[in-house]
Write a protein that binds this DNA or RNA. Structure first.
Lengths: 229, 229
DNA sequence: GAGTGGTCTAGACCACTCA
DNA sequence: GAGTGGTCTAGACCACTCC
């Protein structure tokens, strides 16, 4: 069998796992590895780059490649649309718009978006249900300066997320996850008691430097966010 | 300037963002793009693979490459050692071992690790402090069948996480994040009231198919987990 | 200055999947 | 069967960084 970058990558991962290459140790250079595996240097390079990306090794020009002392691993989470998330779990998806109004944003919101207090923002709140029970409360602010056409959108039909996906591209995003206590409103809508823990995801998106939207997605504490590596 | 895969990738991302390539549309094949950008096909391929990995496009042999309809984006979170996390934020790190004993694991634990009730597990609890205040409560179970040398480890000196990083390699891991209500013990140790929301990260690691450890890391609700894309 | 990784090219063959 | 992406090679030059 011809040497594949996967096979080479996995073999090197094995050597690291089994301490044949100890933490902190310098491993052979690309050319030497290429000779050993009977592959082109580019192939070995690809394998090494994947290991570096996953945090197993650290590479520096001239200095060479070392096994990481503290494998600062990264976890990757897939962020699907709520609807897909619910349907993938076998639930029946339903959606309910609560309200959508242009209104002055609280300071926490316009500061977070780096906008002035005078900026025009559309506030949309809606509920995503799985098999009839509340799955996620969505509380969203849309920057009308960046997406004026949102004024004509019918969020009773399409959820703001799906509408924005189709109508408002973004180039950058920031996700934040945290735990919080449900306020009275959240508790009522999610069938919880006030003060119950909730799992919150926040996302801000930008088109280049222009903020598009800030959304706070609140789940009951039974929610799990899982990633396998 | 010579065409770089970064420049090509960014240009294609721009076209997608600006709807020059509409969602769902078929984009040109690699050869045609290579001609257009004046680059080798391998270079264009690398750019396209990165876009596919980030969820912007979907590629299928024979069918070609399409702009994703629902950009199922992925968020990447770096998972450092607590100590590094605290020090990176400018805090002074301190560590306190609470207890470490071999004891029968509750069903939730041994089932989660796919072990029998008779399996020998070391239960370690410890606290990670930032500038003197509780930052994370670590509650860990170590599979002594897989890591017998943990019996001799001095967790008063080195935290179990750092000890395991050095002494027990793993090949697979699963992360779970969730919100929960602090129980009485957690509340006391983290300076919270019972029932207060906490942010919990759980991690299971395996060496091939053998479970190594299950750890539950509990933070006060002020904790944030952030990822930029 | 020199050594190592980073990237690019041109060409080739392969593998999957659609029709 | 045929078209498209997936991967590999051999060679080259570049860029960073250590000495």
């Amino acid at each position: 069998m011809r040497a594949s970058f996967r096979a080479i990558r996995d073999e090197m991962a094995r050597r690291i796992a089994e301490r044949a290459w100890a933490p902190g140790a310098l491993i052979p250079g690309e050319e030497e590895l290429a000779r050993e595996f009977g592959a082109a240097r580019a192939t070995v390079n690809r394998a090494l780059q994947e290991l570096a990306r996953s945090g197993l090794i650290e590479r520096k020009r001239k200095a060479g490649t070392r096994v990481a002392l503290h494998p600062v691993r990264e976890a990757r989470f897939v962020i699907p649309l709520v609807r897909q998330e619910i349907e993938a779990k076998g639930g029946e998806y339903r959606y309910r718009l609560l309200d959508a109004e242009e209104e002055p944003a609280p300071e926490a919101v316009h500061k977070r978006l780096n906008l002035t207090a005078a900026a025009s923002l559309l506030h949309v709140r809606c509920l995503h249900l799985s098999d009839g029970s509340a799955y996620q409360l969505e509380d969203r602010w849309i920057n009308m300066g960046a997406v004026p056409s949102a004024r004509e959108a019918d969020f009773g039909e399409t959820s703001p997320n799906e509408w924005l996906v189709r109508n408002s591209p973004f180039t950058d995003a920031e996700f934040t996850f945290l735990a919080a206590a449900a306020n009275r409103q959240e508790a009522a809508l999610l069938d919880l008691r006030e003060g119950d823990p909730v799992f919150v995801g926040e996302r801000i998106t930008w088109l280049h430097d222009r903020p598009i939207t800030l959304v706070r997605m609140t789940h009951p504490a039974s929610h799990r966010m899982i990633s396998r590596m």
